[in-house]
Design a binder for these strands. Sequence first.
DNA 1: GTCAATGTGTGAAAATTTTAACATTAAACG
DNA 2: CGTTTAATGTTAAAATTTTCACACATTGAC
Lengths: 219, 219
Amino acid sequence: MEKDISQAVIRRMPRYYRYLGELLDAGVERISSNELSAQMKVTASQIRQDLNNFGGFGQQGYGYNVRFLYEEIGKILGLDKQYNIIVIGAGNLGQALANYVKFEKRGFIITGLFDVNPALRGLSVRGIPVRMLEELPEFVKNNKIDIAALTMPKESASQVANQVVELGINAIWNFAHLDLELPEHVVVENVHLSDSLMQLSYNIVKKEREKKRIAEYNI
Amino acid sequence: MEKDISQAVIRRMPRYYRYLGELLDAGVERISSNELSAQMKVTASQIRQDLNNFGGFGQQGYGYNVRFLYEEIGKILGLDKQYNIIVIGAGNLGQALANYVKFEKRGFIITGLFDVNPALRGLSVRGIPVRMLEELPEFVKNNKIDIAALTMPKESASQVANQVVELGINAIWNFAHLDLELPEHVVVENVHLSDSLMQLSYNIVKKEREKKRIAEYNI
DNA sequence: GTCAATGTGTGAAAATTTTAACATTAAACG
DNA sequence: CGTTTAATGTTAAAATTTTCACACATTGAC
C-alpha cells in the first residue's frame, strides 16, 4: 500500500520541471538542491524532500544531473505520454488554448474544437475546424480523446461535463466557474480565473492596509 | 501586530464567495456551517475556522445570514472597490479576458488593451481599442491603472513587467509562463496554465496506476 | 591513493493546517 | 417567560507539511 503524495507536492512539481528545462536549455549539466533553491526561492530541504517522494534522483557529493532529473519529473507528471484534447467552447479562451503551440511540445494535442454557436461554423484555428456540439458523440467515438477542456459559460458546463464523461472521457480541464460533480473515476482540474483575480485583489488591499499601518506607526 | 492569514485560507475565500452568491440568487436567507459544508464538501469546522480569521459573522443558534456574509467576504477580498486593468498582449487570451463581462460585475474594469503587433491596430474588443505598446506610458500617466494583466509570450513578459512597475502599477496578473522578479511592494498573482495541465496529467496517470494495481490485486 | 569538501537522503523537530470537541450564546417554541 | 435546541466561536488535539540536522556516500584536489 503506497501512501499517496500530497497535492501540495504535486503543485510544485511543474515548477521544478520548468526550472530544470531552463537549466537544460542553458546547457547546465548538474545542479545541487542548494543552487536550485536559491534560484527558485524555496528551501533546499523542500526540494530534496519533494523529489524523494518519488525516488532518489541525485547523487551525494554531486547533486542532480539536470537532464536526468528533468526527464524523471517529466515521467512523474505523465509527460512521456500523448494526450488528445478536445476543447468545448470555441470562444476566445478556447481559441487561445487551441493556439497555444507549447502544449503540443509536452504531448498535449488539441484534436477537436466544439461550440454551440452556428456563427462559428467554418472557422478553424491552426487547422482545427470548429465543429458543432451535436457532432461530439460521433467524434469521440472515432477518436481516442483523453481530456476535455471546458471553456464554455458555466450555465451549460455541468451538462456538457456529464455528457463528456458518458462518452468515456475521464479527465476534464474545467475553466467554467463552477464545481463539477462527477463520478469518482473522473479526474478534474479546475482553472478558476475569477478566483485568481480575487486573490490578487485581496493581496492588493492587504498590502495597502500594511502600508497604511506602517505610515500611522511612523507618525 | 496582526499575524497574517495564510494563503491556504485566502485560496478558499473566493469559493465561499461563489457558493454564497449562488445561495443568494436562490433566495436562501440563512445557512449554517453544516449545511454549507455539505454542499461544498469541506468540513464545517474549516468553514468556521476560516471565517473567524476575519471576525465573527455568524450568530449562535442561527447560523450565517447569507447576504451579510456574502458582502463581508466581498469586502475581505476587496471587491467593494474598483480596479482598472490593462491587458498587455491582445491575442486570444487577452481578448478572452477583455470579453469576460462578469469581471466588471465584481469591479474589475478592463480599461486598455495593448500589443506589439501592428496587425492588431484598429481592432477593438467590447469597445476597447487595441493600442500599441509604445502608447503604454502615456496611457498609464493619464489613467489610474491598478492592475496589469500580462498575456503575452514569456519572452517579453519580464521586461514589460518591469516597465509596468516603473510606471507605477503595483499589481500584476501574470499569465506568462515564468516567475517574475519584482520589487517587494508589487503584488503578483500567477496563472500558469501549463502547470495546471501537468497537474491534470499527473492525476490521470496516477488514477491509471491505481486502476492497474486494483486489477492486479484482484487476479 | 588519500583526504577534505560537497551534497544527498532521511529521521526527527518545528511549524502550520485541519479537524474535533465543547462551552456559550441566541433563537425557537410552547 | 422559561426551557430546549441549534449552531457559533474557540480551545485543544490530530494530522500534515516544512524545516532542520546530520550520517554517509562521492567527488575532486593533491
